[in-house]
């Protein structure tokens, strides 16, 4: 089997969950499996990356990798590809990973497929199209390495019990870089969307940004997380990190509650893996009802407060 690289996104708090998912899959596609971890937290992440299947972790903690929007990372990765000739490099579909993958493609001249949900070989990948109504199997041709971007939560992460050797990566020479010059962050509250057992998600049917407070309250009672459709993210009601769907997050909670969301195909691909789906929408023909286990035709602003009251009264 050809060597496989996983571009493992890391933070000072540890590797991103998707890195471990990709390593788990990579074990069945190639040998050896190496992770490429670049930016602050890279070396510290090596132990976990090894435990999920990387026998080598190419690492460098230099902030140039996290501050230049994939420019430095793509150049380093191209150097590693040249030296080790993997058959496949796996990425997630995150914005940061897309920056690296797009540039790597220009440097290697190889094929790139995005939005994959599975692979059966280093040159065979599957991708849902038309909002998941159809899945196509795609043969990847041309020079190695194939570059495939996989949607997060496509695979369950399972440890291999392995350990990795850490190989240093030089900082590349290059310019002009873009530079991150400011960072504005608010502390996160509640569970991460991908890990929450309940996701309460709102769309344009909530009428106003301030009505998201209702969803925050409901999610809080259920120790869940709040999500949103792209329409309300674009409208600036909630941050992009809330967005669920094709160009946002993919969630697979026990229960997904869609409030005032029409159920466009691009939204549905991000949530149809939920165990149970509840939809509240005032339009009986809303497409979301076609996949809901329980659909309620009604006004969100009436139904949600009733649900909150019912939970409170059952808990006494």
């Amino acid at each position: 089997m050809p060597p496989v690289f996983v571009y493992a996104e890391v933070t000072p708090e540890g590797p991103r969950p998707v890195a471990l998912e990709l390593l788990t899959k990579a074990r069945s596609l190639g040998d050896p499996v190496a992770a490429v971890a670049l930016g602050p937290g890279a070396t510290a992440a090596a132990e976990t990356l090894g435990a999920y299947g990387a026998s080598t972790v190419f690492a460098n903690d230099d902030p140039v990798f996290s501050e230049t929007l994939g420019h430095a990372a793509a150049l380093s990765l191209a150097g590693l590809v040249e030296e080790h000739r993997p058959g496949l490099v796996l990425f997630s579909t995150s914005h940061d990973a897309r920056d690296v993958a797009g540039r790597l493609q220009a440097l290697t001249g190889s094929t790139l497929m995005s939005n994959a949900t599975d692979l059966s070989a280093t040159d065979r990948a599957q991708m849902p199209i038309f909002g998941g109504a159809v899945t196509v199997e795609v043969a990847l041709e041309g020079p190695d390495p194939k570059i495939v971007l996989v949607r997060p939560t496509s695979f369950a992460a399972e440890p291999s019990g392995g350990t990795a050797t850490v190989e240093p990566v030089p900082v590349p020479q290059g310019s002009p870089w873009p530079r991150r010059v400011e960072r504005h962050e608010e502390a996160a509250t509640g569970p991460r969307l991908e890990e929450a057992r309940v996701v309460v998600s709102g769309g344009r049917g909530l009428q106003e940004a301030s009505n998201f407070a209702l969803l925050e309250e409901l999610a809080g009672l259920l120790k869940g997380a709040v999500g949103a459709s792209r329409a309300v993210v674009d409208a600036g009601w909630v941050p992009y990190s809330y967005q669920i769907g094709q160009t946002g997050r993919t969630v697979k909670p026990e229960v997904y509650i869609a409030v005032g969301i029409s159920g466009a195909t691009q939204h549905v691909v991000g949530m149809k893996g939920a165990k149970r789906i509840v939809a509240i929408n005032k339009d009986p023909d809303a497409p979301i009802f076609r996949l809901a286990d329980l659909g309620v035709v009604g006004d969100a602003l009436t139904v949600v407060p009733q649900v909150i009251a019912e939970i409170r009264s059952r808990r006494g």
Binding site: P128, A133, V134, T135, K272, I277, R290, L291, T302
Partner: peptide
């Protein structure tokens, strides 16, 4: 073609 998720019950509020 993906298996359609079977629709459940739709009720009036």
């Amino acid at each position: 073609r993906a298996q359609e998720r079977a629709a459940g019950e739709v009720i009036q509020a």
